[in-house]
Amino acid sequence: MDSAPLEQLDDADLMLRVRSQDDEAAFALLVSRHQKSLLNFFIRSGVQYDSEDLVQQTFLRLYRYRQRYVASAKFTTFLFLLARQVWIDELRRRQRRQRLAESLAAEPYEEFAAPAAPSAGVEGDLDLARALATLSEGLRQVIELAVYQDLPYAEVAEILKIPVGTVKSRMFNALAKLREMLGEKRGDTP
């Protein structure tokens, strides 16, 4: 394992090097490989401005908890477990922040949390993004992990701490709701 160039090592081997040798280059490679997927994970979760900070927090947590990583665990499962925890902490922080914000008088001035400019290039993508955003957190996270991150259901179940059967039912409900919101059941979409 040690003789191979870092770039050729898989995530688990890199993480083991971080765990056993505090290997900075191996950690940097993990950051490079997974920062984009984490960034989009948080953006799709509804974070508009602070998504890169949450990515940073996730990697910082990965480093802090590096000794908890065991070779038998898939790296993405470990990483998204941490990302989910960061997201839960962020939701709690937002709830506290919301309480503080509500104590401030409503103002006619520019809103801080104005919706971000849509990045989707076509109206169809916009509709899809909006529909996705209206899903409940439980349904949306199943879509996020199984569709966008392409994780097997067993990993999704482990990350969300739910049975595989629940992953399946949530996935079905999520896709069905998306179809309904996009009007596909009415035959509006080819």
Binding site: Q35, K36, L39, N40, I43, S51, E52, V55, S119, A120, G121, G124, D125, L128, A129, L132, I143, V147, Y148, L175, L178, R179, L182, E184
Partner: peptide, 14 residues
């Protein structure tokens, strides 16, 4: 639907 979801544009890290 899954194909459409996956085809959505991705954000690039700074």
């Amino acid at each position: 639907l899954v194909t459409r979801l996956r085809a959505q544009p991705q954000h690039e890290p700074s």
